[in-house]
Amino acid sequence: MRIPLALLALTSSCFSALALDLKGRIQWNEHCEGLGELGQTKVVLDNGRLHGGVTQDGTFVIPEVPAGTYVLSVLAHDHAFEQLRVDIFETETLPEVRPYFPGTPLNPPSTITLPYPITLTARGKHDYFVPRESFNVLAMFKNPMMMLMLGAGVLVLLTPMMMKNMDPEVMEEFKERHAKMSGAQSALQSGDLMGGFSQLLSAANEEAKGATSVAAKGPSALGAKQRGGKNKKR
């Protein structure tokens, strides 16, 4: 009366002789270390009518899958998995597994085939939150705008001191140049483009000239000026 195992298996699957139990496993990795982290998870084909649950050791079996082309996906709550294209044939051959990207046509199939039984790994853990922007003085000063402002502030404080220590002749020149530049700037601002340009150009020319002339004049003139300055102060 006892019926052999094979016969029993046959009777249980007599309705779908061509169906196959699709097997695979989820490889635990650093994103997902076990079923406790993964939670109750299903591996589904297409819209989920055929599915299998992930067991504690990561394996899953989707029973009685008829021949056809399917898209396999993992319904995990907190983890991301890739989708696969699975072809199951009417013959005894093993299913073909290929990577699949959602939204792309299934045909032509990808040329890459993956081994069977299917191995899946978590590609990452979903991050649901955005970090809070908290007040941080250091971060505030790391902001380039802030740094510029700080730099400008330092300059404002330092310029009078630098001016004080500067050589009077250089100072004179600097003032001159500054006046020209500001003149050009104001001209530009007022819309007189040509005038501004010509002023800039002339300023540049004179600068070149001035540089040579200063070098030519030598130290005497410099000394006289210095003395003059000193006299004035006293």
């Binding site: 249980s12 139990d21 649950g53």
Partner: peptide, 22 residues
């Protein structure tokens, strides 16, 4: 047929014993 760990509720085994239509 499913077997669960009674402490953690983890699925230990899952098996289809006969065809759903049967």
């Amino acid at each position: 047929f499913r077997v669960f760990d009674s402490n953690s509720g983890h699925l230990l085994l899952e098996r289809r014993l006969h065809d759903l239509a049967a």
